[in-house]
Design a protein around this nucleic acid. Structure first.
Length: 431
RNA sequence: UCUGGAGUAGCUCAAUGGUGGAGCGGGUGGCUGUUAACCACUAGGAUGGGGGUUCGAGUCCCUCCUCCAGAGCCA
């Protein structure tokens, strides 16, 4: 038996091979029938002709059903009529299991039904493509970081308190120590990591107990945080831009079939691999007010503002130098204007919203302490964080990328919930 | 939490206040190049729960539940 994967089938033209997988669909036409087989690596059409096989194999058309698992042997053969260019002239089919009543048909379904059957929906073509794209994006991010001197540094998921006192945390009982919380970002720990390793990143699940209910939010999502010593605000944005452009290029290069299945406008995506836009928060506010927004120079961007800002842009846009009131305590003040902090948000085009949040960090002990006191933070819990400014402080910067938002934008899908295998939202904890 | 919308066959949807239908999926049969194949036949229903109006309610009213879209917060 010469077991091969469908993705490699072009290398076996004219040879007899064995494929192992699942029935995606079956079409019958009397003395000939067609099976669409998937094996995780791709999809191929098999032809079963009464002239080529014995009756026992031919009659399987009467019992094979969608998602039945099978082992198929046949001759690989190039044919223009076949989707993918190659098809399999079937010689033999070994049944692993005949499926009864698979719930998801090839017709349209509602989102509630699909989410209830997420464990099966994952097998559908679009979901398959999206999960492969997610994998490639995940891989490209770490590939870029590894090539640029970043060391993977796994920050803890169970933490004693909020990283940024603003958002709501999931609470868990923690033995005799009271309550623990699920991390909403590993960033503060990364700041400790760079003082040892210079450049570090983490990549893992983070948790937000906010009752957000939009196509851009999940309660559990995967975030990559990177942090680098001796990198300032400008260098930080440069790093983010290079990384995102690398991811775009890699996705287009390695995932063209997946992007095609997703009906992504690849030409438009290619245009995003160009110098990103840059505006200060103040410039953005002026621009938005001219367009009719009610935003003020003390406000964060609303969803409509993000759309207005990027509607005429092919590339993502950095919004930098934010009023300190709307950003986290650890961001460094702008030396030229103490009301501003050296933070940057990267807004994706086409209405996908913020895909990166980053900043240069406050590295002065006294300034940071004053800022934390002003926000009534529990100083004892953060003494270790203040220590980093006491023992060899250096200018440093970092940023976080939301994997699902980035995948949603690059894949061109409307809702973030399809970009993670099992999404968690306020109203969905299962399957 | 707020605003808007929707719950009818396993799924996706129809049905002027007057006998609840179709497509897909299931079953049976037909077809040698199908592309979410097609054709014929067939089985399949407390119309989300409760209450009300009416001779009569899937349809109108009240209420509860569930889901969807958007907002705020954020990645």
């Amino acid at each position: 038996m010469n077991w091969v994967f469908i993705k490699d089938i072009k290398n076996y033209d004219g040879q007899v091979v064995t494929l192992k997988g699942w029935m995606y669909n079956l079409r019958s036409s009397g003395k000939i029938w067609f099976l669409l087989l998937r094996d995780g690596t791709g999809l191929i059409q098999g032809i079963v002709s009464k002239a080529d096989v014995n009756d026992a194999v031919f009659d399987l058309k009467n019992i094979l059903t969608q998602e039945s698992s099978v082992i198929v042997t046949g001759l690989v053969h190039a044919d223009k009529r076949a989707p993918g260019g190659f098809e399999l002239i079937v010689h033999d089919i070994e049944i692993v299991q005949i499926v009864q009543d698979y719930p998801i048909t090839l017709k349209e379904h509602g989102i509630e039904f699909l989410m209830d059957n997420r464990h099966l929906w994952l097998r559908s073509r679009k979901q398959w493509a999206l999960l492969r794209l997610r994998h490639t994006i995940y891989y490209a991010i770490t590939e870029y970081l590894n090539q640029n001197g970043f060391i993977r540094f796994d920050s803890p998921i169970l933490t004693p308190n909020a990283c940024e006192g603003t958002t709501t945390l999931f609470e868990v009982p923690y033995f005799d120590l009271g309550k623990g919380y699920l991390s909403q970002s590993g960033q503060l720990y990364l700041e400790a990591g760079i003082m040892s390793l210079g450049r570090v990143y983490d990549f893992g699940p983070v948790f937000r107990a906010e009752k957000s209910k939009t196509r851009k939010h999940l309660t559990e999502f995967w975030m990559m945080d990177a942090e680098a010593a001796f990198i300032d605000h400008v260098g930080n944005m440069q790093l983010q831009e290079e990384l995102i452009r690398y991811v775009i290029r890699t996705a287009i290069e390695r995932c063209e079939p997946e992007l095609t299945i997703l009906e992504r406008d690849i030409a438009r995506l290619k245009k995003a691999d160009a110098p990103f836009g840059r505006m200060t928060h103040r410039e953005a506010v002026e621009y938005l007010r001219k367009k009719g927004s009610t935003i003020t120079d003390k406000d964060d961007l609303g969803a409509q503002d993000e759309v207005l800002l990027t509607e005429n842009s092919d590339v993502p846009i950095f919004i930098e130098k934010w009023p300190k009131e709307v950003k986290a305590f650890y961001m460094k003040r702008d030396a030229k204007n103490p009301d501003l902090v050296l933070g940057d948000d990267l807004i994706a085009p086409e209405g996908y919203g913020e895909i990166i949040g980053g900043s240069q960090r406050e590295d002065d002990y006294d300034v940071l302490l004053a800022r934390m006191q002003a926000e009534n933070m529990p100083l004892a819990e953060y003494q270790w964080f203040l220590d980093l400014r006491k023992y060899g402080t250096v200018p440093h910067s970092g940023f976080g990328i939301g994997l699902e938002r980035l995948t949603a934008w690059i894949g061109g899908v409307q809702h973030i919930r399809e970009t993670i295998p099992f999404p968690r939202t306020i109203y969905r904890l299962r399957p």
